[in-house]
Design a protein around this nucleic acid. Structure first.
Lengths: 350, 350
DNA sequence: ACTTAGCACTCAAAGAGTAAGAGTGCTAAC
DNA sequence: GTTAGCACTCTTACTCTTTGAGTGCTAAGT
């Protein structure tokens, strides 16, 4: 396994990704930095085929990479370009919106941007709210017997839920409830809002006042929402263009959220590429999914991924994915006032 | 143009929709309630072709409906089934969620359900928030120099926006601002939140206190959000299955929101079907879009639509669309306390 | 020992020719 | 006005052939 063979493997992957056609020895030999004859390339390719990195769709065709071939290429051979400064600025602009931005929105923007940039479907499984702290709980009267519970987290997320009660609350009751929530919930982390704790609260309150049961109920739901991961898929429509993708499988896979979730939430670090056939439960023909974790402080709190054809320009896509997940990690890991968020440019130079 | 010819046209449309193959005279003659020979059917079909309702892909093939053929079928010939009671109950269940539900959520649920039921993409352009009344405006401190503006409408929508100020507000300032908003905004309709009015408010407040400018700014944005229509597309992935659809055009059309918007916001009443070729600016090959308006009181406030292949079971899809738009109309037109919403079954029997 | 030219070989893709079959239009009989 | 019969058309499927890209192998060159 010498230098040149690897170079040829890389060339095959890149040509195949570029053209979509099996690549032959002549095409490779014609590339500028190969410098050997087609016959030599053929010998090397035969070797690479024996090793399982290439395969022939049929005898008289050129070669295409196998999954192992892609894997080797991705792990060892490709040289993803450094994102130039103005490119990074462009990406930052896609993430940033005017005004203070919640972590949630930041992550949504990243997903949308990723779908756009890669012309693939982008997907995110986000647990980050679970690792933030409740900074504010309010109960706001909003009409006859209707109260809105408002929950703000240190991540800048604002969640609300309307609840309808049997009777209206008196000012005293409302004040009492608000004070109770303030004392017991503000400042604690979302992760601590266990079912158990919520049940205690339910017990405490409903013992005191049955009327408030729906409020407590609503609060439980909100807390459950925050602790659960949010799964978002963007840019599915981009997959329309790839003729070789098995559309039925794509639909099945994306619709069937639990498989997707399992693959995303699986713990690992850095970047991971899984292929549509054989890997885990991911079985879309001719597709691959690239996933990158992002962190909040020391915890993995989410996974950002790209779903596309196996024949994908990994060297282009992976840097985007890495950049975004690093950026998200940087921004959400800051311990400062969440309100300071929104001008990522000010403080972060990639 | 006799009875039988129409019956034959209807049969051709239905057979073609069912099988996807051009239908011949023999197949039609074999249908139970035709009762004439293939030769007779052939004569009628030749006539229908002359009239422009049918066409032949090539001489020796059966017939397929033209756009005029579909149109005649939809307008005059088809007999959409009455939705049976248990079906209506099923649909209601798809709309309703536990707890008080905002109009917004109701409409989103309807769109998702429609996509699911029809196995097409569903789309909605919703102006309804514009026709509701501001029932509550609150400004809530949420951290250092951060304030959340909360806006609740009679439709049950809850919008919020975080704003960062240069300095913290004193309690007096906050109270003053809150009172001002309460006096000037609560109870007025969203439509009245014109740019002009908002500018007056901006002027009034910023003359008084520059510090609050971002709050006023945020409020303007919220009000703009409410007045603008919200365009949502659901179930795009369902379109993967239709082989005959021009995918590139689908992507282009859905991505390019303004064409879609124009078609949806065009004013008409009842149900409208547009076809992908020739009609207006809607140019997806072999596709059609069915749109239905829903109202709030006397105003059209939104359009619910289905985008699918031209070869679509209109008789099945249209009743769903009609039912949902009527249901939405009924539910959002009620003048009662919005909080009463959420158990549509209680009060509405379709 | 590695590289390369040459060459026979393979096999998909493209084209040509043919047969089968579905469906038609027309005509004449009912 | 309807229908059976029939010749006609034109796609689809099949077979056969040709073409050409690409291979593997061998033998010569470095």
């Amino acid at each position: 396994m010498n230098e040149r063979k690897l170079k040829i493997l890389a060339a095959v992957v890149e040509e195949y990704v570029r053209t979509g056609e099996p690549v032959g020895s002549k095409a490779i030999a014609a590339l500028p930095d190969i410098g050997v004859s087609p016959a030599t390339v053929r010998n090397d390719m035969a070797m690479l085929e024996q090793l399982g990195y290439l395969e022939q769709p049929h005898t008289s065709a050129g070669r295409i990479p196998t999954i192992s071939g892609y894997r080797l290429y991705i792990d060892k051979l490709m040289t993803p370009p450094e994102l130039p400064f103005d490119e990074r600025e462009r990406l930052d602009a896609m993430l940033a919106e005017q005004g203070p931005m919640s972590e949630e929105l930041l992550i949504q923007n990243a997903t949308t941007a990723l779908a756009e940039l890669t012309q693939c479907a982008a997907v995110v499984s986000d647990f980050s709210p679970k690792f933030s702290v409740i900074s504010k709980v309010e109960v706001i009267p909003a009409g006859k017997r209707v109260y809105v519970i408002l929950l703000i987290t240190s991540g800048g997320s604002i969640k609300n839920k309307a609840c309808r009660l049997e009777f209206d609350l008196t000012n005293e009751q409302l004040a009492m409830f608000s004070r109770y929530l303030e004392e017991h919930l503000e400042g604690i982390s979302v992760a601590e809002l266990s079912e158990e704790r919520m049940e205690n609260l339910t017990a405490a309150m409903s013992a005191y006042m049955m009327t408030m049961a729906p409020l407590v109920q609503g609060l439980c739901e909100l807390s459950r929402d925050l602790r659960q991961h949010a799964l978002t898929v963007r840019g599915e429509r981009n997959l329309f263009s790839y003729e070789d993708l098995d559309k039925m499988e794509v639909v099945r896979f994306i619709e069937h959220k639990d498989e997707l979730t399992r693959l995303l939430d699986d713990s690992f670090s850095g970047i991971r590429v899984v292929f549509g056939e054989g890997d885990d439960s991911f079985v879309i023909g001719n597709s691959s999914m690239i996933v990158s974790k992002y962190r909040k402080g020391d915890h993995n709190v989410g996974s950002l991924g790209v779903i596309g054809p196996m024949r994908l320009d990994y060297a282009k896509v992976i840097p985007y994915l890495e950049y975004f997940s690093q950026k998200i990690t940087d921004l959400i890991s800051e311990e400062e006032d969440p309100a300071e968020r929104g001008e990522p440019d000010e403080r972060n130079e990639g």
